[in-house]
């Protein structure tokens, strides 16, 4: 099977829009946080797709001669940072959700609107 030329990029765009849709339609703050991780995962798909090389090996030369064709190690390093960013943002947001629930007694973004006008 051939590699369809633009397919993974369209998947990344689709996932981005799915995540945003989740945030917009959300009725629960935890749901909103999880939707945000979906937005984040679109960047994984995009980064992975642009660094991939047909027939390339993983960039680990443990059992590989040094001239081998490998996929791009840079995007993988960027993705590692991306993974960490995702976790930390989620941890922080969930802490806010928990605390907001304890203080405001609600998990719905519709009822957590103390700042209006």
């Amino acid at each position: 099977m051939k590699f369809p030329a633009d397919y993974p990029y369209f998947v990344a765009a689709w996932i981005l829009l799915c995540g945003l849709y989740g945030i917009v339609r959300s009725k629960h703050l935890v749901h909103m946080v999880i939707s945000l991780t979906v937005v984040q995962s679109s960047t994984y798909v995009l980064l992975l797709a642009i660094g991939f090389r047909r027939g390339g090996y993983a960039p680990v030369f443990a059992g590989l001669h040094t001239g081998a064709r490998v996929v791009d190690p840079i995007v993988q390093a960027l993705m590692l940072t991306d993974v960490v960013v995702e976790t930390t943002v989620v941890a922080l947001l969930l802490a806010m959700v928990v605390k907001a629930y304890e203080k405001g007694g609600t998990t719905s973004p519709d009822d957590l609107r103390f700042l209006r006008g």
């Binding site: 990344a12 981005l16 945003l20 945030i23 703050l29 909103m32 945000l36 937005v39 984040q40 679109s42 960047t43 995009l46 980064l47 991306d82 960013v85 943002v89 922080l92 947001l93 806010m96 959700v97 605390k99 907001a100 203080k103 405001g104 957590l112 609107r113 103390f114 700042l115």
Partner: peptide
Amino acid sequence: EPAPLAGAFNFAVTNSVAAFLMLT
């Protein structure tokens, strides 16, 4: 109070989305 948490949450969600767009 709940208000600072709501404010921080709005701030965090919008700015995180912005960061992911940037990364794209």
